[in-house]
């Protein structure tokens, strides 16, 4: 067993020039962040006026309600709930398509390597504004403008998707390889031709993957919009819950969960294939990036 390595055996440097051990640097950043989080948490818990007894009673009540919901779920509510969920899927589909169609040109304009300086700034601001509107608020507005029904939901989902989709489109386009654009310009292509043959072939797989990902998110969103009368399963659910028809609500929730998970599975498989190609691996991380995608 060799001994511990010791500094005296190092032959290549003299004592004078041997490096000194550095002092341990003090890093206040992470500690500060943790303290801030803890202080905020304590303040919030202290002033919330929530009493512990209510919290502790929670699990019991939750279990009771869950039992009423699931043991057994009200199977007679299944056909209506399923029809509602189908309507939610339709809302999500049309909404995503509308969002995708509008976001593509805006996103291209917002990309620095495609749009001009002025159009980039304007397009980005438009996208930022759209991104901060919650779908529910949009749905309320559309319901009051065009009346109750799934179309209001689809429009709300569409408008709500433009912001994130446009932003991600711009990011993807900005990240592409400049070479093919140069090559297209070198053969004398017009701006539109450069877009079509230099930019889109590189960016499209990612952009379509984002559309699909957004569709997954929109399925969740469309399942709740019914609450404000914008169609889909949400209105039914809200009614069941407020009239304490827990068995029917349980059935509807089960259908929401099952359909959402099924859609996620299919969609993430397609996304993976789009990004990696047919030969691409089936394992590995989901090719969905940026937290902002949500």
């Amino acid at each position: 067993m060799p001994g511990l390595p010791t500094r005296t055996t190092s032959p290549t440097r003299t004592t004078a020039e041997r490096a000194m051990r550095p002092d341990k640097p003090r890093r206040y950043g992470p500690i500060g962040l943790a303290l801030m989080a803890a202080a905020a948490g304590l303040w919030a818990a202290w002033t919330s006026g929530i009493d512990l007894a209510t919290v502790l009673r929670g699990p019991e009540t939750l279990l009771r309600i869950l039992r009423m919901m699931l043991l057994p779920p009200d199977v007679s509510a299944a056909p209506a709930a399923f029809a509602g969920m189908i309507e939610s899927l339709q809302i999500a589909w049309i909404g995503t398509l509308l969002g995708a169609a509008v976001s593509l040109p805006i996103g291209l304009l917002a990309a620095k390597n495609v749009g001009g300086r002025f159009s980039t700034t304007v397009a980005r601001q438009v996208l930022n504004l759209l991104r901060s509107l919650p779908e529910l608020v949009l749905a309320i507005l559309f319901v009051s403008i065009i009346g109750l029904g799934p179309l209001a939901g689809a429009l709300a989902i569409g408008l709500g998707s433009i912001g994130t989709l446009g932003k991600l489109t711009a990011e993807v386009v900005e990240g592409i390889d400049r070479g093919p654009i140069e090559a297209a310009e070198a053969v004398g292509a017009s701006r539109v031709q450069v877009l079509r043959w230099g930019v889109l072939p590189q960016a499209m797989p990612e952009i379509i993957a984002f559309w699909l990902y957004r569709f997954e998110i929109n399925v969740r969103a469309s399942a709740i919009l019914g609450l404000v009368g914008a169609g889909g399963i949400g209105g039914m659910l809200a009614n069941y819950l407020s009239y304490r028809r827990y068995g029917s609500a349980g059935m509807a929730i089960l259908i929401v969960i099952a359909v959402t998970i099924a859609i996620d599975a299919v969609s993430s498989r397609i996304r993976r294939r789009i990004i990696a190609g047919p030969q691409g691996s089936r394992t590995g991380p989901d090719p969905v990036p940026a937290a902002d995608a949500l």
Partner: peptide, 17 residues
């Protein structure tokens, strides 16, 4: 200490942090 000494042996201890 053992970690520091092995850094010294490869003469890169000044980069420890």
């Amino acid at each position: 200490e053992a970690a520091m000494r092995s850094l010294e042996r490869v003469e890169i201890v000044e980069k420890a942090y």
